[in-house]
Amino acid sequence: MKTRYRKWLSLGVMASLSCYILLGSATPVYAMHIAEGFLPVQWAIFWWAVSLPFFLVGLRSLTHITQQKPELKLLLALAGAFTFVLSALKIPSVTGSCSHPTGTGLGAVLFGPSVMSVLGGLVLLFQAVLLAHGGLTTLGANMFSMAIVGPFMAYGIYHLMLRFGNQAVAIFLAATLSDLITYLTTAVQLSLAFPALQGGFLASLFKFVGIFAITQVPLALCEGLLTVLVWNWLQKHGKQELQMLNVFEGH
């Protein structure tokens, strides 16, 4: 890498770190999985109905991949394990509140977004049943935000950014933005179900988003960096698999 580029990079890192620490104000935060029973019946059913088709399509492409290219099963397990780990980690953020990353970006870029709706859905199911984190009635809604909107965003951003060249940047942005959009979706879902008495939907959306935004930004960046780390490793040691998946297409 050229020295000039390196200088700019370190300057950027320093500037963003100082911004990050300065932003450390303290507000409580609302985010992530909607708890069991905390969506009215009609909304719970609605989000289940929206998410189910994606899940079924994902299931089909998952069986397709395992049948056509069984040697990719390990990589599939890796993508699943990545979301599994990341969604277990409640990371402290500058706002004095903890929240967790989603980890769906990696798998979405590797296998396509619909596969991640299955893997992400399984992670959510695990957390809903065993950890009382999220819930079965709200699983549809949580799946929609974390396992559908997030991965689709990651996939879209990745292929869009690939046109401008740098792959690492494309991966980073895909993972970071998919994390943020997941939270944004949750905020939208909650505002739809619980519009403010004064101001309605928009007022409560503003409230929800305003509060989680700052907490989630550093975590999203963290997730982006982690995803690039795993990606670098895969590029070095799993070239065969990556070529098989034609992730470099999309120009």
Binding site: P28, V29, P92, P218, C222, L225
Partner: peptide
């Protein structure tokens, strides 16, 4: 990359020492 991840994840603990971190879902 690893350094960045560590700073982002552990930085808040150093900056906001002694504060109790809440969980997001509860606030929800």
């Amino acid at each position: 990359l690893m350094g960045g991840i560590l700073v982002l994840a552990l930085g808040p603990l150093l900056v906001l020492q002694g504060r109790e971190f809440g969980a997001t879902d509860g606030h929800f």
